[in-house]
Structures are given as structure tokens and as C-alpha cells.
Design a protein around this nucleic acid. Structure first.
Length: 576
DNA sequence: GCCGTTTTCGGCCCGACTGTTTTCAGTCG
């Protein structure tokens, strides 16, 4: 039987094809068609396998007849003839060469044709031997830059976690905001949109005096390499390889610039289309009437959207997932905010692998304004995390009851557990134990690489248990390294809806699982969502912001998230 | 290669920066 490819693998094939077409010198729009679909597939909340089975590949945005056939071929055979044909002309090593900063398709082909270079090591050797500088369009500076970029490749991280990027961005931006002549500044790009992984950082500042700001930016202590420095734009590389771009624009153009640099690309494309429909062209600087006439400047984002007849759209929604239509109809959801959250239903203490006592966690939760929490330590079979035997679970119950009595009524403290779904599919406690726990979260920590049928069956078994209330971090992904388990999410969602089992958005920036797209789909099916921090110490609670951003990206309203409910509503839901 | 309440053909993504140019091509986001 042919090997089955998953969504990500198929997306990778299309991205490689896009690279090859680019090397061939194809027209950009054909290339973009492949890239767009690759990106869409990567974020798709449904399996291509399932969509293909339902003959619905054409319903994917950007997939027409040709790409649908290519997806089918990949699904059925694990191969793609078109890819192999291209590989005859374009050695796969050339695609690698494109990863070197400063080397695009034209240079790569030049090196290949003139010097037979088809790999990064070959490129490095040629540069070191001074063979590149004599080629047309090249010089010693370009050659040196290529060598530098090859060195930088080694420390280049692909994508980093949201919290890592956020911290780096704030550290860069904060001192700039103190400079004279700086009127305002923001983190833009995918950090502002709250994506779970970040490829680069975009900063924006409003000022009439860009030069000293650029100067300060490129000389920030975290900067290891200056990639470019101009009057309106500068780019640097940080120690961890992350790239950061800064743009400085005059304040009266700040709105269009912030909107433009927040993205996403697809959202911006839609905005430009809408502008064109209104006789305007839109770019980062202004609206310009197509028929000629004075520019329309926007100092703030709401002005940009108002110019397009739209209410301001929260950055987390700007992914071209229908948000512009909703905005146009005036039915954008009132997205959940941190202040809506009344409860955290998943946290650990010293009883298992947490760092603080039950009482400490309660104290911090109350400080943070929560009105109820669930202590959910690990269950017995998770030995590495000091999981609780039934006896210890009973002993912990006494302590939790005492802390609850101490903190009530301002904070209620319930006993839960994060129960292992064992590798063999059984649950870690019997019903006789589960029935007296206030809340049961069931999670997968082991056997995540089991075949689809097996790992899915384990999760379904947990969902169907009447005592299981929430599934913790359902897909088991770890950012940025560990792929989610190969779960049949259609089956998972179906069972969760049927049994009224909530699915978690684990707010830890290492997890953010469910991700935005799956959380959106689950909520659309009427499945309840929990946003929990999974705190193992006091700092863990700060992860809530990332969970909330993910929930907002999923378009969730407060009422769809059980952590916003009153304690009475929550208890009533548990009882039924 | 996709897409259509202007269209089934002709648009789609354009501006900043760099280095090598001698007026601009290539790269990047």
C-alpha cells in the first residue's frame, strides 16, 4: 500500500514545487497559486484524506481542478509525476540553495549554469574560492554576504514560539519608544495577530525623524547582524537567528502602515480588493484615488477600515477566513477577552510535578482575579510526573477542601485530575474513583505516534466515559518541534459533541492545542471549549494571554468558553 | 494556477533596500 501523506507533507511538496517553478522562471502568479494552497493546507482544520473521500477538495480556497488532481494523486500514490518531471530539470539541491539569504532564483540558476552549483556546501566552497565575484551582476560584496548568510543559516531557527517572539519584540521596541520624536509604536505582524509560531518580528513606529531611531534599532544589544538599514525600513537578525524588521512612518500615515504590516497577506489582499471596488488603491502609505486626486491618509487603523465601510477588525481575525464579510454585515463576533475569564480548570501543584502548593496556587489565582480553579495533578501512571495513586488522590482531596474553605467565597477550589489515557487505551482510574472527583481532564501523553486508528480510538474511549469532562491538549503537539498525533479529528469532534465533552485550548505557548483552526471548527459544531493555563508554577498563569489570543483567532465568543461561566453554571454543567 | 454581483480571459503584488549598475536587476517580505 502506498504511504499516506498528511496535510503538512502535501503542503511541503507544493512549496517545493513553487521553489522549482521559481527557479524555472515561471510567472509569479502560477508560483503564488502553489504557495497559497500550501499555506492553506498547512492550516486546514480537516484532513485532506477526509475531504478527498467526500470529493470536496475543490472547496478548499485556491484549489482548482489541477491542484485537486495533484492532491488526489499524492493521497493515492504518495507520489506526484509533475514533481518528478520538474526534478529532472531542477536538481532538488537548488531548492536548498534558495534558503541562503540574498540568493534568489536568478542567482541560484546563474551559479548552477556557470559553476554547476547545486547545494549549499558547493555554494560555500565556490564563495570561499572567490569564484562567485566574477559572475555578471556579482561582486565581492555579494560574495561576502552569501558566505555570511550561509554561516547564519546554521543558527537560524525556523519558527519560534509566540512567547519567545513577543518577549524579543517588546525588548527591542521598549527602548525605541523612549527616543525623542517617537510618537507611538507597536508590535505588528504575526505576533500582533497571535499566531502560535512566529517566523519574524515586525515593529512599527510613528515619527518624523526616522534616522536616529533606525540607528538605535540596529545597535540594540540583542542584534547580531544588520541585514539592511534605510530611512523607512531596517532589518536585523537577533542572537537566536530571528529576523526583525522596523518601519518608521510619519504619524499621519500610521494607520495604513499598521494595518499593512499587521497582515495577514491574504487579509491585506482582500482589503485592497475592497478599496479598488471603491475606486481607491491601498498600500502602506495611503489610499490613492484610481482616477487621480489627493491621497487619503489614515493616522489610525479604525480610519482605514472606516474608509472601506468596515468596523475595525481585531488583528487575531485577520487571516482571510471570512472576517471581512462578517465585518461588512456588521456581525463580527464579540471576541473573548482576558477579562471575561473567571476560572482556570487545569493546573498542577507539588502533589505531582508542579512547583507550588495548592494554597499557593489558590492565592495567586485569587490575586489574578479568578473566582474558581480546578487543581488537576497528574494521575498514577505518569510516573515521571509523580502521578497520584488513589490513596494520594484521597489525601489531596482533604487539603483541597481545606483550602477551598479558607478561600471561599471569593475563590472556590475544586479537585480535578489530569488523567492519563494509557497507551493501551485504558483510563488511569476506574469509574469508582472518577465519580467522586469534581472535574476529570483526560489527556494523551504517551503513544502519540501510534497509528491513526489506534490513537483515535484511545481518545474516543476517554470522550465517551461519562466522568470525563474535558480533553486536555487534544492533539498532543509541542511547539515548535512535535507534530500533533495523527488523530481523526472528525471522529473526535463528533464524539465530543455527542457526549458534551469540552475540548481544551491549552494556553501554554508550548502547546496552544487545540490550535485556532480546530478550535474554530469545534465551536462551530457546538462543542464547548475550555481555555486553561496548565500552570506548573506562578508564572504559568501568564500563559492565559496566549490561550486567549488563540481563542480569539478561533473567533470564539465568551459564552463558548466554559471558563467564562459563573461557578453555578459550571457546576450545573458538570452535574448533567 | 485560480477566479468571476464588472469578467470564462485577463488580471493577480508591490515597494524598500542593496549592490552593481551607468539607469537597474535581484531579493525580500
Amino acid at each position: 500500500m502506498a504511504q499516506t501523506l498528511n496535510n503538512r507533507q502535501i503542503a511541503d511538496v507544493f512549496d517545493t514545487i513553487a521553489d522549482m517553478l521559481q527557479l524555472k522562471g515561471e510567472i509569479i502568479h502560477r508560483i503564488l497559486a502553489y504557495r497559497r494552497v500550501a499555506e492553506t493546507i498547512r492550516e486546514l482544520p480537516r484532513d485532506l484524506r477526509a475531504l478527498a473521500a467526500e470529493d470536496k477538495l475543490n472547496e478548499i480556497d485556491g484549489v482548482g481542478k489541477v491542484l485537486a488532481e495533484k492532491i488526489s494523486e499524492l493521497l493515492e500514490t504518495g507520489e506526484l509525476r509533475f514533481y518528478h518531471e520538474l526534478a529532472q530539470e531542477i536538481p532538488p539541491g537548488l531548492v536548498e540553495v534558495l534558503r541562503v539569504n540574498g540568493v534568489g532564483p536568478k542567482k541560484a540558476m546563474l551559479f548552477y549554469k556557470e559553476l554547476g552549483i547545486a547545494s549549499i556546501p558547493a555554494l560555500e566552497a565556490a564563495a570561499q574560492a572567490g569564484k562567485l565575484r566574477n559572475l555578471s551582476g556579482m561582486g565581492s560584496k555579494s560574495e561576502a554576504k552569501i558566505l555570511e548568510s550561509i554561516t547564519a543559516l546554521a543558527r537560524r531557527t525556523n519558527r519560534v514560539r509566540l512567547d519567545t517572539a513577543w518577549a524579543a519584540a517588546e525588548k527591542l521596541l521598549r527602548p525605541l519608544l523612549q527616543l525623542p520624536g517617537v510618537i507611538q509604536g507597536d508590535i505588528a505582524g504575526s505576533v500582533r495577530r497571535g499566531k502560535s509560531t512566529i517566523g519574524d518580528i515586525d515593529l512599527l513606529i510613528a515619527s518624523y525623524q526616522p534616522l536616529p531611531i533606525m540607528e538605535a534599532f540596529v545597535h540594540h544589544p540583542d542584534v547580531t547582524r544588520i541585514l539592511g538599514q534605510g530611512e523607512t525600513k531596517s532589518s536585523v537578525e537577533l542572537e537566536n537567528g530571528l529576523q526583525c524588521d522596523l518601519r518608521v512612518v510619519p504619524p499621519e500615515r500610521y494607520g495604513t502602515a499598521l494595518s499593512y504590516f499587521t497582515g495577514s497577506k491574504d487579509h491585506n489582499t482582500r482589503l485592497r480588493e475592497r478599496a479598488r471596488d471603491r475606486g481607491l488603491s491601498l498600500n502602506e502609505w495611503a489610499f490613492t484615488p484610481l482616477e487621480g486626486g489627493a491621497e487619503v491618509l489614515c493616522a489610525s487603523e479604525p480610519e482605514v477600515y472606516a474608509q472601506l465601510g468596515l468596523p475595525w477588525i481585531p488583528p487575531e481575525l485577520r487571516e482571510d477566513r471570512g472576517e471581512i464579510d462578517l465585518a461588512a454585515q456588521g456581525i463580527l463576533p464579540r471576541l473573548i477577552e482576558i477579562k471575561d475569564i473567571r476560572a482556570d480548570l487545569h493546573m498542577h501543584t507539588t502533589w505531582s510535578d508542579g512547583k507550588l502548593s495548592v494554597r499557593d496556587m489558590a492565592w495567586i489565582a485569587r490575586e489574578r482575579g479568578l473566582s474558581y480553579i480546578v487543581i488537576s495533578d497528574h494521575s498514577q501512571s505518569l510516573g515521571v510526573a509523580n502521578g497520584l495513586s488513589v490513596e494520594r488522590l484521597r489525601a489531596q482531596r482533604e487539603e483541597i477542601r481545606a483550602v477551598d474553605a479558607e478561600f471561599a467565597p471569593s475563590l472556590r477550589v475544586f479537585q480535578g485530575v489530569e488523567m492519563e489515557i494509557r497507551a493501551d487505551g485504558s483510563l488511569d482510574y476506574g469509574d469508582d474513583v472518577l465519580e467522586w472527583l469534581d472535574v476529570v481532564i483526560a489527556s494523551l501523553h504517551s503513544g502519540l505516534r501510534q497509528p491513526r486508528e489506534q490513537v483515535t480510538a484511545r481518545l474516543l474511549n476517554a470522550i465517551r466515559n461519562p466522568h470525563v469532562d474535558i480533553i486536555g491538549h487534544p492533539r498532543g503537539q509541542m511547539i515548535p518541534d512535535r507534530e500533533p498525533a495523527d488523530l481523526d479529528m472528525d471522529a473526535v469532534f463528533g464524539a465530543a459533541r455527542e457526549h458534551d465533552t469540552a475540548l481544551e485550548i491549552n494556553a501554554s505557548p508550548y502547546r496552544l492545542d487545540l490550535d485556532d483552526a480546530h478550535a474554530r471548527r469545534a465551536a462551530e459544531m457546538g462543542i464547548k471549549i475550555a481555555v486553561n493555563t496548565d500552570s506548573h508554577n506562578g508564572d504559568g498563569f501568564t500563559a492565559l494571554r496566549y490561550g486567549i489570543m488563540t481563542a480569539r483567532r478561533a473567533g470564539l465568543r465568551p459564552e463558548e468558553v466554559i471558563n467564562t461561566w459563573s461557578v453555578e453554571s459550571f457546576l450545573a454543567w458538570l452535574r448533567q
